[in-house]
Design a protein around this nucleic acid. Structure first.
Lengths: 109, 109
DNA sequence: TCTTACGGTAAGTAATGACTTACGATTCTG
DNA sequence: CAGAATCGTAAGTCATTACTTACCGTAAGA
């Protein structure tokens, strides 16, 4: 999994809709296509993107393929944002402190 | 902020590099462009995308513009993934339970 | 075996995206 | 006021993407 592939996968609304559908339970391609406003091949292509990004898993069941969310992939993306978020907070706090030091208690304008 | 704009913004490596640069402290456009392998106008365009996505804030300082991470925007994206992640875990657990019920202690194949 | 269901892939298209260089607007400085 | 610095925007280009229809392989059922 790369951050490029993961975030690119999440950038498309159709793929996020697919993930939302899979959040309840694992589903086949045709079943997903029925609830979506795009063709079945389109769903198939989206699922390949999601699979390459490590966000979903596939398990063949006879002639049909069962797709499910991959908690590991989601966890990695989550971890990335967690780190950046904490950095943002510390930088935010540092900036606030700098601001306070520039105008210490009395503002001279 | 829309999830479309936020994830699309995060999908580009150059923009993630910009966010990483901003994680330390707020910076100007030219300063960011110096450390990146793209032109300054490119950085300016990326910053507009990040700003529209709510991931970055701007504060004009004379002729230069100071860009900083926006913790709120990052928090929203984080919340989205958090929800989907928990759903993925419950679905995962439910699938495991179904699997166990289909082959109860002895597997008949 | 023949047929049917299911799904991946090929090929083509219209739209979007990530860049570049060139230019214009605005604000400090001498 | 003149010049320089900083930045946003316009315009153009090449690559990628999100779809479509058409086709092919493969597993289940009569």
């Amino acid at each position: 999994m790369t951050y490029d592939s993961a975030f690119s996968a999440l950038a498309c609304g159709t793929r996020r809709a697919i993930l939302r559908d899979l959040a309840g339970s694992a589903k086949t391609v045709g079943l997903l296509a029925q609830t979506l406003p795009v063709s079945r091949p389109a769903v198939s292509q989206h699922l390949k993107v999601l699979s390459d990004a490590g966000l979903v898993t596939v398990t063949p069941k006879g002639t049909r393929n069962l797709y499910a969310l991959n908690p590991q992939g989601l966890a990695q993306v989550r971890a990335y944002l967690d780190e950046m978020w904490s950095d943002a907070l510390t930088a935010f706090a540092a900036a606030a402190q700098d601001m306070a030091q520039e105008t210490p208690s009395n503002d001279e304008n």
